[in-house]
């Protein structure tokens, strides 16, 4: 990676060495990672995709059945519910975590008193695992012991807030826990981004008479593009692998109303002892990531070279 910057100062040799032989040490050092990437990621993925076309049950076997597993997958109600849930959770989580993270960071950046204390409080949930988060929120949202009971004891006896037992809004119960856990980290990243903005920009904006909020929206946020992309990647990878929170908080219930794709994969691979069905589901998960990732990568990296 440091190759190009070192090359700048050196005089151009009579004959340029082959691209592949430049910086041999750096290349040797990266061999283990390249191998890992090839064998574990590419190899494992290929293996999974290939076996998703078989009728493997508990153990993998090479009895190919074409697209049967995929046909069954897409005609399964639980899978369809899982996909819808993930889409709902994904969109809400992405938007809300970014918004809340940024607003918290911007507020902290206004040179408030006890900033360190606030930062710690907001970041604390991130130190908890999803399992602990899920259990804690399961208790908080329990109608008999938690929030609902508390508000009723204060005197508002008709107050009803029972998302975990209501199939229509159970995903929002999960969302609250997910955002509570994740927004602290995003806030920290955003705060670092905000601190990286030159003080002179603010002064210039003030001289030009631009309001604080408008400065944030029009000048600061566009300047924080790399920070936003980092946050986006972190949040998105958290969304697609959403599993432990669901298992701890609702276990997919009530009924199948909070099922997610990752849970479907695990359940079908091990509990139902139908490996191929689980593989088909995980291949679909991979495919959806690829479909989102490739156009974005093309715009992000391909576009810039030409522009």
């Amino acid at each position: 990676m440091t190759a190009t910057s070192e090359q700048i100062g050196t005089p151009i040799a009579a004959k340029r060495p082959s691209r592949w032989l430049r910086n041999p040490m750096a290349k040797i050092a990266s061999i283990p990672m390249i191998l890992t990437a090839l064998v574990v990621f590419v190899g494992g993925t290929t293996w999974t995709v290939v076996y998703s076309f078989t009728d493997s049950k508990l153990l993998p076997r090479e009895n190919f059945v074409g697209f049967d597993q995929y046909e069954r997958l897409w005609s399964t109600a639980r899978w369809m519910v899982s996909i819808k849930n993930l889409a709902l959770y994904g969109v809400c989580s992405l938007v809300l975590t970014l918004t809340i993270g940024f607003i918290l960071a911007a507020l902290l950046d206004r040179k408030v008193r006890f900033e360190g204390a606030f930062r710690t409080i907001f970041l604390y949930p991130f130190a908890l695992s999803f399992v602990v988060t899920g259990l804690a929120w399961q208790w908080i949202l329990n109608p008999d012991f938690g929030l609902q009971n508390l508000v009723r004891e204060w005197g508002w006896t008709s107050f009803t807030f029972d998302p975990l037992n209501n199939p229509d809004i159970v995903m929002f119960g999960l969302l609250i826990a997910g955002i509570w856990q994740g927004s602290g980290l995003i806030m920290c990243i955003m705060l670092a981004g905000l601190r990286g903005i030159d003080e002179d920009i603010w002064k210039a904006a003030r001289v030009d008479g631009i309001g604080t909020i408008k400065t944030y929206v029009v000048i600061i946020i566009p300047m924080m593009r790399p920070v936003f992309i980092t946050s986006l990647v972190l949040i998105a990878s958290g969304i697609i692998k959403l599993y432990d929170l669901v298992v701890a908080q609702t276990n997919g219930g009530p009924g199948i109303s909070s099922e997610v794709p990752a849970k479907y994969v695990i359940n079908y691979m091990f509990q139902a002892q139908n490996l191929a069905q689980g593989f088909a589901a995980s291949t679909m998960m991979l495919l959806s990531v690829v479909i989102i990732l490739i156009p974005w990568a093309y715009l992000e990296f391909g576009g810039r070279k030409r522009g």
Partner: peptide
């Protein structure tokens, strides 16, 4: 019944009873 079929029936029951 195989665990696969059992799981499918359990999924159906979970859906049936909650909705």
């Amino acid at each position: 019944l195989t665990p696969d079929t059992q799981t499918q029936i359990e999924d159906l029951m979970a859906e049936f009873w909650s909705g």
